[in-house]
Design a protein around this nucleic acid. Structure first.
Length: 922
RNA sequence: GGGCGGUUAACUCAGCGGCUAGAGUGCCGGCCUUACAAGCCGGGAGUCGGAGGUUCGAAUCCUCUACCGCCCACCA
């Protein structure tokens, strides 16, 4: 069993066939499961629970990808890693969905009754609730499914009840009659954050309130009081007209009564400083039952509240003949009637914001209602403090201000909802004595009067009440479980910034209150997903890109990579299928590099060339350690060939860099660095450098090279695994180290930086080989040398190390630059007459042009280059002649400038010689 | 009304006090070189939104300003 696959890799990665099998193997292997008893530092993420009825959208995909990258990284690092998944019951949203299907069936929740309806929702949940969870698996999410939770499962419901009762005991939960936000469509109260404001073009109506005769019965000589309002239909709820006490225009009206138009009812004129003299007419109709400001004014003046609009959004009996009309339909009728009665002075256009329900977009109706509230002051204060003092960090930190502003201006949280789907409020009312009982266990009787006729509060709690407990309720609270002890506080929360108030803030409050500690150390607020044009994705706009379709088309790895590489500090992330396609090429690149490496390691050439030599001993397996392990010292031979030394040194640098990026949660830079390195260094240079050796005769040198090839590719796969779990897992069996025990790559240790494995010499010399190769390629391209032209370039340099490297790797270079021979020259060597010159900091490259010479063109080229260099010299000299610069700039910077200056001066000198020669030809 | 973000190559973005401002895509020219044409090689391309200021040095920090976007908000 413990054998490597021997068959050649297929030409392409068949991700659609491989992904499900790989995922199933991970899951069956139990590799996602966390063990609180295991050693290691804890790394914990709780998933932002998607709605049970939901389908995977781009926002989830981004969220899950980022969490999975971090989770896989920390798991490989050896941390005790838990990623806890689950779903949210999503009160209104879910209830709406089920109600819609009932409607199609020709019935309704009212017809079914509460019990049957709730049972229907559970049924729905059982049937479709698994959808979203299956879809998370398609993305490769390595969640610990054994710990999957649902906000309405038994344990979490207990936690909700415990929290509610405790808060009630402490006086932090109360019930009362206040003006709240009401959605007439959902027929429930909603909290402040659930109201969104939309700017609308509307009208300001000027209504005449006729002054009532004074108590003596004499008709008033005062003209009618004109009041401006956007909502004439609420006038039936007016209980006063208010003016500013300092407003000289209305002094005579104070204390008088005015008649509400269309009603005959009269109300007092009161003075209140709230009234803005500048706005409208300076007189404000006071409607305490339907406006938050008016509600406040009414409290100050002890005015009654009249409800003119009911919970269905219909006008009440207070509206007389208009009773039963919808508030929005009533307005034009009322305006017409006012006009007819001569009580409408005029109408002005006005743009203002109206509140709408964030779920159904209906206009929110403020009305007075008996609801449950959470007293928020102390909770918000603690939550604010925890971010202010750094116990929890928001990333990017710019969000802190938003968070503080919200916490500072927060009002009590209305938590009761007139829904059936959710956690029913644990409150009972004694029908005999009216006592309210809030209890952990269902009460049998009234503790006050002993009455047994109790009625339970029909309302349920705001969905966000239970999600606010998510970081500890999912770990078993209020039980003192091993999970809770080990995994709370969680390490990082990854979510979109759109739910800072809804969710993040509430978790902060609840975590601090009930666990005595913050729920997470870091909150990563990632961008919101937009379409390719930057527009919000929405069903109505028709620009929704389905993540599952993208995965079907390009594979999960390419999709994940495209999300992770774009998830920087910006606020928008544009999902463009073309871009995903671009990264699918990267997956293909990796696959093909693997094909090459694999075929070489298996002892033959690629299968596209000659057949593999039968019986050849497979290459020595890769070493398990990271790059360069144990090779810091020793002779050149012991360190291996120059390309070997170089790739190990580079890989070591990359290991360090990407580790730092991931530790700082910069998945974008982690991805970008790997992309650059794998494609433009490993594939474009290293693999090309290895080929001649690998295809050459067998021997110690070849074997050493193959060993480096195998181990470095294995390292690359491990580095890529967090973001590209599938393709790396699929390839792993080919590159796993000796003693391979069938354990998957996801359980391998993440490569570690080796501070001893630096090799600046190798980096420098390979750079030199690259420079020469590029110079010759450039000359070939610039002068249009035919593809078959035989070139015999020369490199002029006196640097012994470089001369050495060039002569040693001459044959190798010839292939890369398509030349016939390469010769070395020194300062004494005369330059061949017909040749292109590339000036490098340490020498020149001469490429003979063999009849393709065009001295004028080259002259122009060299002159252009010398212009550029002159400018650089001037800049560097200017700096070094500036005493302020020498005085104030850091030493390293000055040293760099000096070095730079001598380099460009050398270059210019060298260029000067070249120019001279070309001029003599031209 | 208050706050936040963006403005860098044709497009999408990175860089956020010091290398000649980068990458991907696109574009132009040349290659079917035996891992990959989903590829290779070479190339052109930007007064870093505008105006001031701080600094030896600014795309980067400060002030003002223009446009685009987002969030919060009890002027009816």
């Amino acid at each position: 069993m413990n054998t490597r696959p021997h068959d050649p890799l297929p030409k392409n990665f068949d991700f659609s066939a491989a992904e499900p099998d790989i995922y199933a193997a991970w899951e069956e292997g139990g590799f996602f499961r966390a063990d609180p008893a295991a050693p290691g530092e804890s790394f914990v993420i709780v998933i932002p629970p998607p709605n049970v009825t939901g389908n995977l959208h781009m926002g989830h995909a981004l969220d899950v990808t980022l969490q999975d990258v971090l989770t896989r990284y920390h798991r490989m690092k050896g941390d005790n890693t838990l990623w806890l998944p689950g779903t949210d019951h999503a009160g209104i949203a879910t209830q709406n969905v089920v109600e819609k299907t009932l409607l199609k069936e020709g019935t309704s929740r009212e017809e079914l009754g509460r019990e049957k309806f709730v049972e229907r929702v559970w049924e729905w949940k059982r049937q479709y609730g698994g959808n979203i969870v299956r879809q998370l698996r398609r993305l490769g999410g390595s969640c610990d499914w054994s710990r999957e939770r649902f906000t309405m499962d038994e344990g979490l419901s207990r936690a909700v009840r415990e929290v509610f009762v405790t808060l009630h005991e402490e006086g932090l939960v109360y019930r009362g009659q206040y003006l709240i936000n009401w959605c007439p469509r959902c027929r429930t109260a909603v909290s402040d954050v659930e109201v969104e404001h939309e700017n609308r073009r509307d009208h300001l109506y000027y209504l005449k309130y006729v002054v009532e005769p004074d108590p003596g019965g004499a008709a008033s000589s005062l003209p009618p009081l004109v009041v401006a309002t956007t909502r004439p239909e609420t006038c039936f709820g007016d209980t006063a007209v208010a003016v500013n006490p300092d407003d000289p225009r209305f002094g005579e009206y104070l204390g008088r009564r005015v008649v509400i138009p269309l009603t005959g009812r009269s109300v007092p004129v009161v003075a209140d400083a709230y009234v803005d003299m500048e706005f409208g007419t300076g007189a404000l109709k006071v409607t305490p039952g339907h406006d938050p400001n008016d509600f406040q004014i009414a409290r100050r003046h002890d005015l009654p509240a009249v409800s003119a609009i009911d919970e269905g959004g219909l006008l009440t009996g207070a509206a007389g003949p208009y009773r039963g009309l919808d508030r929005l339909e009533a307005r034009p009728k009322i305006v017409a009637d006012l006009e007819r009665a001569g009580l409408l002075e005029r109408t002005d256009p006005l743009e203002h914001a109206v509140g709408v329900c964030y779920r159904c977009r209906s206009v929110i109706e403020p009305l007075i209602s008996l609801q449950w509230f959470v007293k928020i002051g102390s909770l918000a204060g603690a939550a604010r403090e925890a971010v202010a003092d750094g116990r929890t960090a928001l990333v990017p930190a710019g969000w802190e201000k938003t968070y503080f502003d919200w916490m500072d201006n927060i009002r009590d949280w209305c938590v009761s909802r007139q829904l059936w789907w959710g956690h029913q409020i644990p409150a009972w009312y004694c029908q005999k004595c009216g006592e309210t009982i809030v209890a952990r266990e269902d009460p049998a009787g009234c503790p006050k009067c002993g009455g047994t006729e109790l009625e339970r509060d029909p309302d349920v709690l705001d969905t966000w009440f239970s999600s606010g407990l998510w970081p500890f309720s999912t770990l078993g609270w209020p039980e003192r479980t091993a999970d809770l002890a080990r995994y709370y506080p969680t390490t990082v929360l990854v979510t979109g910034f759109d739910i800072i108030f809804f969710w993040v803030a509430r978790m902060m409050m609840m975590g601090l209150k009930f666990m005595g500690d913050v729920p997470f150390r870091t909150v990563i607020l990632h961008p919101l997903v937009r379409d390719a044009q930057g527009k919000k994705m929405s069903k109505t706009a028709g620009n929704v890109v389905d993540p599952l379709e993208v995965i079907d088309r390009h594979g999960a790895d390419a999709f994940r990579f495209s999300l992770a590489v774009q998830a920087g500090q910006a606020r928008d992330l544009r999902v463009d299928p073309k871009r995903v396609e671009g990264y699918s090429k990267f997956v293909n690149k990796i696959w093909n590099a693997a094909r090459l490496a694999d075929s070489l390691l298996r002892g033959g050439a690629a299968e596209t060339t000659a057949a593999a030599t039968p019986g050849t001993t497979p290459a020595a397996p890769a070493t398990p350690a990271g790059p360069g392990a144990g090779t810091a010292a020793g002779t050149a031979d012991a360190r291996g060939s120059l390309p070997d030394r170089w790739i190990r040194a580079r890989l070591n640098q990359v290991v360090k860099a990407v580790g730092l990026e991931l530790d700082a949660f910069h998945t974008d830079r982690y991805c970008d660095q790997l992309y650059q390195f794998v494609w433009y260094e490993f594939c474009d240079w290293y693999l090309e450098l290895v080929k001649p050796v690998a295809y050459g005769p067998d021997g110690p040198a070849r074997r050493a090279a193959l060993e480096t090839l195998g181990s470095s590719f294995a390292t690359i796969l491990k580095l890529l695994h967090p973001v590209m779990p599938f393709v790396t897992e699929a390839l792993w069996p080919r590159f796993a180290p000796a003693g391979w025990d069938l354990s998957p790559i996801m359980t391998q240790p993440f490569p570690q930086f080796d501070p001893r494995a630096l090799d600046p010499e190798a980096l420098d010399l390979i750079q030199c080989l690259m420079d020469v190769t590029r110079a010759v390629r450039q000359a070939r391209s610039d002068f249009g040398l035919p593809p078959g032209a035989k070139l015999s370039p020369a490199v002029q340099t006196t640097d012994p190390a470089r001369r050495n490297a060039l002569s040693e790797h001459g044959p190798l270079l010839l292939k890369l630059m398509g030349a016939e021979s390469l010769s070395l020259a020194d300062d004494e060597t005369p330059r061949p007459r017909e040749s292109a010159v590339n000036v490098l900091p340490w020498g020149q490259v001469w490429t003979p042009l063999a009849g393709h010479v065009n001295p004028e063109a080259e002259l122009a080229r060299l002159e252009k280059e010398s212009q550029k260099i002159r400018k650089e010299i001037a800049a560097a000299r200017g700096k070094l002649q500036n005493p302020a610069y020498l005085d104030k700039a850091p030493e390293e910077v000055v040293a760099e400038t000096r070095e730079k200056l001598s380099e460009v001066e050398r270059k210019l000198e060298s260029l000067g010689r070249a120019l001279e020669l070309v001029r003599s030809l031209a």
